[in-house]
């Protein structure tokens, strides 16, 4: 793919689809909040205030306060880092591990491939969220295990994709030439195969981010992983849920809204990236 066509396709994707532009802006905003959130937050996320409990949104507390008088705006802002961090870590792990395993299975074939296929099939045989829940419940209730669980359930997406792509390319002329040139398997895999499928895999990863965010937040929502009083969107929605029948909507709407924006942003971004990298797959 030549640079000019990439640029022109990027421009086309942005012009054709304003939504991709919106996604890029939201993405920048999210990253900004993740990095500088703790500096910008007007209050400490853990500071309770008996005198200011359950206050509706106001100029003093943009998103209102919760049952302990904590400032919801500060908590939502600061939670950005944890929520994005969990999702990004999980996606990176499954991306790297899945691609490596899938590439090796596709390259060597035989029993390596057979075992790989079995393991992926077994993961896919579970409803994924249920498996994630089981993993966290078994490994123990902490953030690391949320990341591991989310990474494991996403492994097959990358693994299978990489395996199929490598399988197709394994016997192509340029790979054959590299092999005859005396390059080792790892070197060929990385230099001649994986690097070529990377753009498409990255699209996959960004489409996967939204799902990873939902998954991590979902686990926290049912009480797995992140423990109160740590600010995290899923757990804040779950805490706010208790006040739904007394009408204190701000307790769950703002953290939930943050989740929606983050997921929406990554889904749009993935769509836009796909239009740039691989326009034919558009649905």
């Amino acid at each position: 793919m030549s640079d000019t066509s990439l640029i022109s396709r990027t421009r086309y994707a942005l012009a054709e689809n304003r939504m991709t532009l919106l996604a890029a802006i939201l993405f920048a905003l999210l990253i900004f909040c993740a990095i500088f959130g703790s500096l910008l937050a007007p209050y400490s996320p853990l500071m309770t205030n008996e005198g200011a409990r359950m206050q509706p949104p106001s100029w003093l507390h943009l998103f209102g306060t919760d049952s302990l008088g904590r400032d919801i705006f500060s908590r939502v802002l600061i939670a950005t880092r944890l929520d994005l961090g969990m999702a990004i870590s999980a996606v990176v792990i499954s991306f790297v591990v899945g691609t490596a395993l899938g590439a090796m299975a596709g390259y060597w074939g035989g029993w390596v491939d057979a075992i790989f296929g079995r393991v992926m099939d077994t993961i896919m045989a579970f409803p994924l969220f249920v498996l994630a829940m089981g993993i966290v419940a078994a490994l123990g209730n902490n953030v690391t295990n949320i990341i591991i669980a989310t990474a494991v359930i996403n492994l097959p997406f990358y693994g299978r994709f990489a395996r199929a792509e490598v399988n197709v390319r394994r016997d192509l002329a340029y790979v054959e030439a590299a092999r005859m040139g005396g390059n080792g398997a790892i070197r060929i895999l990385w230099g001649h195969i994986v690097r070529n499928i990377l753009p498409v895999m990255l699209v996959q990863a960004s489409l996967n981010m939204g799902w990873a965010i939902l998954n991590a937040a979902g686990l926290s929502f049912i009480g797995l992983g992140v423990r109160p009083p740590t600010p995290e969107w899923g757990i804040m929605v779950s805490e706010g849920a208790s006040y739904i029948f007394s009408g204190e909507w701000w307790t769950f709407v703002f953290p939930g809204g943050a989740l929606v924006i983050a997921v929406f942003c990554f889904n749009l971004l993935g769509d836009g990236l796909r239009d740039i990298v691989d326009p034919r797959r558009r649905t």
Binding site: M19, G210, F221, G234, A241, F252, L259, V260, F264
Partner: peptide, 16 residues
């Protein structure tokens, strides 16, 4: 696309 961005548990609470 918007619908897909809503966490199921959040939608549930919102609808209620």
């Amino acid at each position: 696309t918007v619908a897909a961005a809503f966490p199921t548990f959040f939608i549930a609470l919102l609808l209620v």
